[in-house]
Design a protein around this nucleic acid. Structure first.
Length: 551
RNA sequence: GGUGGGUUCGUAUAACGGUUAGUACUCAAGAUUUUCAUUCUUGCAAUAGGGGUUCGAUUCCCCUACCCACUACCA
């Protein structure tokens, strides 16, 4: 009776999906794909009070961005996604659209004696709880207190039956058995036992909004959707006994899914679980995508912060799971092959933003120059730089211009130029957004000179020599004869170094003076790289600028 | 308070009951480089505490401490 693996991610659309939620979805997805099964997204929107418009769309988009694509569920537009060859129709995938099916299951339990009608009002129960708390006790709605409360167990049928019609906010509660040890198995945590006396009679269905609570909807839907493994957050572990008992009450033990409870993501410092506040406080995103709430408060997202989805997913996968060896870099396909619930860590995983950054850096390096160039161009445009596809082609403005690689005056650069820049700087960055800070001097003449570096290198005996090197570069014909206007890095580097060495000039000091003129600081690419990129004309401009500024 | 879960360097983690307790991130130092960055090398740094079981315990058992979750007509 081997069943096809079917797992589900069942978020509640009450806000943006937390990165812990993404991890839960990811582990579900990896498990499904590894077993050649289906990954299903089910929207658990049975709480009309907490429903947040846009949250569902956000969740689907976030998972999409991560490459976690459902075989069944809803897509970002709200359309049903279903496996084409599936025999069983499982739609709809939103519990609010399934409301019609839950009541009969709840009533079936009442008929079998596993549940009962309860007529206590929320106020009455709140009063009971307050009373118990005052006496330093815990109020539990169970076999002891049940008798003194208003329900179909404590009252004669003649009394409660009419209440079903007249009373509009009754509930159906599970009848928790007395003093029974529920024995459970968790794929991650092993064997667990709990005595039912510590549990209470949970509400399964509410007459007020004709909707089930999580527990009922969850079990019924998992059964109907033929879910084989339930992989969910640790916060559900305490209700596992109830869920076991529910499967038993329905007589569905044979097809009961296996359970795996994942530990929570903890904040990077201090105590407690990772929250939105930690991100704001420590300066990192806790959500995959940017989210703006009803009050207009914006929460940053990994996508908008410049993370590659592969890096984000990889980082998340390693938070609470490891392959058993030293490998740390995994593509989604590799994760699918390597993943196993047996190697999921039981304890909570503290999130480390530094490591997240490191992952992005690693992935940045694997990207092609062309790909990174495409990502860099919008950043350049934000800084007023125009990038054209070829040296001689029409600008968007309409005017035709000729750009010889770089036109600093008009702030126009060729695609080819940008790509060269990218190839030289990509190993120095963690994010594409860093490119501008690292390489702005390759697009704009420096406006200021770092004081500390000026003090260290800008001395007459150094800069007079630096000017001679600049003159040499300007006169260099690149081996192309007198007509050769520019040169490559390879062409200039040797002769330039030869000049300095043959005259026994102090290489470091001279170069840094030149670098100060070109970059505005004593950091950055090699001089040969810079001058071959920006060209003779711009070199002259920058020498002139620094003369004016510092002499 | 009750119930359940958890505890290896600062962080993420590895280690059939037998290891000088490994790796990565961070940090520090050194090498390389015309500077910075990269790269490379090295270093700092852990089994929560106490009892057992055992020839031998990070590993198994018990107690304590601490952390987390749950304790709603929320999920």
């Amino acid at each position: 009776m081997d069943r096809k693996t079917r797992v589900r991610f069942a978020p509640s659309p009450t806000g943006p999906l937390h990165m812990g939620g993404v991890r839960t979805a990811l582990y579900n997805y990896l498990y499904a794909k590894q077993h050649g099964g289906d990954f299903i997204i089910r929207i658990e929107d049975t709480d009309s009070q907490r429903f947040v418009p846009g949250a569902e769309k956000y969740i689907i988009e976030a998972l999409n961005w991560c490459g976690i694509i459902p075989d069944e569920g809803v897509d970002a537009e709200g359309n049903v996604v279903e496996t084409p060859s599936e025999r069983h129709p499982h739609a709809p995938y939103r519990q609010s659209q399934r409301r019609g099916i839950y009541r009969k299951y709840a009533e079936e339990l009442v008929e079998k004696g596993y549940a009962y009608y309860a007529f206590d009002t929320a106020e009455e129960l709140a009063a009971k709880r307050a009373e118990a708390e005052a006496a330093k006790e815990t109020f539990i709605y169970n076999h002891i207190t049940r008798k003194s409360l208003r329900n179909s167990v404590s009252m004669p049928e003649s009394e409660w039956k009419p209440l079903l019609e007249t009373h509009t906010d009754w509930t159906i509660r599970f009848r928790m058995p007395e003093n029974r040890v529920v024995k459970m198995d968790d794929l991650i945590r092993g064997h667990i036992e709990v005595n039912t006396d510590t549990l209470d009679d949970k509400v399964l269905w509410k007459r007020a909004d004709e909707l089930p609570t999580y527990h009922l909807a969850n079990i019924v839907d998992d059964h109907l959707m033929e879910i084989t493994e339930v992989i969910r957050g640790e916060e559900w572990l305490p209700s596992l006994p109830l869920h076991y008992l529910l499967y038993e009450a329905f007589g569905w033990q044979d097809s009961q899914p296996r359970f795996a409870h994942l530990s929570l993501l903890l904040k990077p410092d201090g105590k407690g679980k990772l929250s939105k506040r930690d991100g704001d406080r420590l300066g990192f995103p806790v959500f995959p995508l940017k989210w703006t709430n009803a009050q207009g408060e914006v929460s940053r997202g990994y996508r908008e912060d410049g993370y590659f989805p592969e890096a984000f997913v990889n980082m998340l996968a390693m938070l609470g799971w490891n392959p058993g060896d030293d490998r740390e870099l995994f593509t989604m396909d590799e994760l699918i092959k390597a993943f196993s619930l047996e190697r999921v860590i039981k304890s909570g995983a503290r999130f480390n933003p530094e490591k997240a950054k490191w992952y992005n850096k690693e992935y940045l390096r694997t990207k092609s120059d062309a790909e990174l160039t495409d990502l860099f161009i919008p950043v350049l445009e934000e800084h007023g730089i125009q990038v054209v596809a070829c040296p001689k082609c029409a600008l968007t403005a309409g005017a035709e211009v000729t750009v010889q690689g770089a036109d600093f005056k008009n702030r126009i650069f060729t695609h080819d130029y940008v790509q060269k820049v990218v190839s030289l700087i990509k190993e120095r960055a963690s994010f594409v957004a860093d490119f501008w800070d690292i390489a702005s001097y390759l697009f704009v003449s420096p406006q200021t000179y770092v004081e500390k570096d000026v003090a260290k290198f800008w001395k007459e005996e150094n800069y007079t020599l630096a000017f001679q090197v600049a003159d040499f570069i300007e006169g260099f014909d690149g081996g192309n004869g007198p007509a050769g206007p520019e040169f490559t890095h390879e062409q200039i580097e040797g002769p330039m170094e030869e000049l300095i060495r043959s005259r026994e000039w102090p290489m470091g000091k001279v170069m840094n003076c030149l670098r100060l003129a070109l970059v505005g600081a004593s950091s950055g690419l090699g001089i040969a790289d810079i001058v071959s990129l920006i060209g003779k004309k711009e070199l002259a401009v920058r020498i002139e600028n620094i003369r004016k500024a510092l002499m």
